[in-house]
Design a protein around this nucleic acid. Structure first.
Lengths: 332, 332
DNA sequence: TCAAGCATTTATAACGTTATAAATGTTGTC
DNA sequence: GACAACATTTATAACGTTATAAATGCTTGA
């Protein structure tokens, strides 16, 4: 009889237990003013009645939403990125009193809009977003507003909570692996320059190149965010040159697959003419043939860490104590 | 000065416009009782002040949450499934007054729990979930409760809103393609039998097999949900047999990649000894070498369609008018 | 001119919770 | 036995909105 079901309120708990509504409220909030005996009795009655606090009422009264907002980028080419990240996030938030809401801004839109909307209308207690830029206006805005947030990616502003993958180390390790295989003319498919992580990755690449005395190339005309067929065709052309690269760094799986196609279609043989090191964020390359040398980035763990950091920040932790740099894990 | 910012309420709009709060409320709700002139004036003032209704207050008063709950399965092997689906969902919901919340149940847990929790505590106005079983208790519960929901996948219960991909057609087309290539000993990696879509796919497979007079095989000991290395090793063993299959149907990308590895490691040549048809839900096979024959399933479109259906159902549309069967689209 | 009828607006209460201030009971001290 | 001091409980109001019922002003017809 679900339609005759009446959701029990504090009033019901009060009537059954014989205490006032206020007392029930305080008891359930573990207010130390309430006598232990009373607290126990009220907790018992609440349990029996199946009382669950009404979020809307709590939210209206206190201003706290118990909501964490995930602001996603327009769905792009990063394979399974959002899915894994969300999954890690959900695992941590489950079991707390918080909920996750999702917002996705459209391609042409100002990424600032959803953030401002959430803050101004108190739609959440904290915000998470990814793909930061060095002078990210979202970060600046949230810091000014004193609003809890955690970013996936660093910025030039030092004292906020962030999680980042060490892309400088990624590039360095990738170069080292290729050099160890005897490669000396390396090419990296760079991320879009406006993202902070692109700077790290490129700087790691360039430093490692210099250290090992090999040549490094950042291609013109395409990047990690380009359509995969564009990466494919430009790379194929490049691989037709006499001075073609003999080592490729692909910081993404779709780019790696496009690269493998370009290599094959250019008539080159992987492992003989050229080698590839790719970043791996999913299972795609676990059993792939030809075998691909990969360096892992654990997106699920990122989601978990970010969620934990945000919950801590909402509970009052200082943002600059909530910074995690994740080191690359070697592939299989 | 974000901390001195006062979120404008109907009271503010009322004071500035000179009308009563009630009138403001009605005007903003487009109540026909309100004079057109008044409505316009109030709308103008609300706009100027940047008034946005307080969801918590609306929710407390009306019981409507303006929330749509996405209940996700534990993050599994389906590549990018959640990500694309969520993305399509978000695109549709953006611009409406609805929000999306995410819940994910853990592996060992009763999938019913989050659903019951949402319904009993009115945490949302509608629910979406995937991977239905023929006698899905979640569907039964929600129908009994009269709670709006849309499933990804059908059930035995006819009159609820659902979206489904025509997996019977998928299997049929896959068989036809392999037969057209001269293959006659086909093997399909079946989905877990408990899901409704497994029945459809298997029945499509078996019918097509019979029609074309070829042999069909559903392997024992592994399925689409098995760990990929298990699929790989069992398939490799099977491909070592004398009576090995010469055509493989892989209804998932990770399974397809594992299969390709098994084929290669068994010493067989794709296109000569054996052919593969795979279901494609991401970009992985767009530029893959070797080229893979795929049949598309557009997860993003699924998300969009499901979101639209749910919004309609919340607005009162009859559930049995909200059923979509998506036909397979040929791969590249 | 007055009442009836209509169009429009408004006062009041309520949703379920918690912050504030007030009230009650209990103990100890002189 | 009175009073202060404390521990504990409670009444009241408020968060911002909307449903209900009441009130206002204006038009119309006699």
């Amino acid at each position: 009889m679900p339609n005759t079901f009446h959701k029990p309120t504090q009033k019901d708990v009060a009537e059954v237990s014989g205490f006032a509504v206020t007392t029930v409220s305080r008891a359930l909030a573990d207010d130390p003013l309430i006598a232990e005996k009373t607290r126990k009795r009220i907790a018992q009655v609440a349990e029996e009645l199946g009382y669950v606090p009404d979020r809307a009422a709590q939210r209206l009264r206190t201003g706290r939403t118990h909501v964490i907002a995930l602001v996603l980028d327009p769905h792009g080419e990063i394979l399974d990125f959002s899915g894994s990240m969300i999954s890690g996030f959900a695992e941590v938030v489950r079991g707390t009193k918080y909920h996750i809401t999702l917002t996705q801004h459209q391609t042409g839109e100002d990424p600032m809009d959803p953030i401002r909307h959430i803050v101004r209308n108190r739609l959440a207690d904290g915000i998470v977003f990814a793909r930061t830029e060095p002078d990210d206006p979202r970060v600046q805005y949230l810091m000014d507003a004193g609003f809890p947030f955690v970013t996936h990616g660093r910025t030039r502003m030092a004292s906020h909570a962030w999680y980042d993958y060490d892309n400088e180390a990624f590039a360095r390790i990738a170069v080292e692996r290729l050099v160890a295989k005897g490669r000396s003319r390396l090419l990296i498919i760079p991320p879009l320059a406006r993202y902070t992580f692109a700077e790290h990755m490129v700087s790691g690449f360039e430093r490692a190149i210099a250290e090992h005395g090999v040549t490094g190339e950042l291609p013109d005309g395409f990047d990690l965010n380009a359509p995969s067929d564009e990466i494919y065709s430009k790379l194929k052309t490049r691989l037709g040159d006499a001075n073609r690269p003999d080592g490729l760094i692909c910081p993404g799986e779709i780019a790696a697959i496009s690269s493998l196609a370009a290599i094959e279609d250019a008539g080159l043989v992987l492992g003989t003419d050229i080698d590839v090191v790719a970043k791996q964020t999913s299972q795609v390359f676990d059993l792939h043939r030809p075998r691909i040398d990969t360096i892992h980035e654990d997106i699920n763990a990122a989601g978990q860490t970010i969620a934990r950091a945000l919950l801590q920040e909402i509970d009052g932790a200082a943002p600059d104590t909530l910074q995690t740099l994740q080191h690359p894990r070697p592939g299989f």
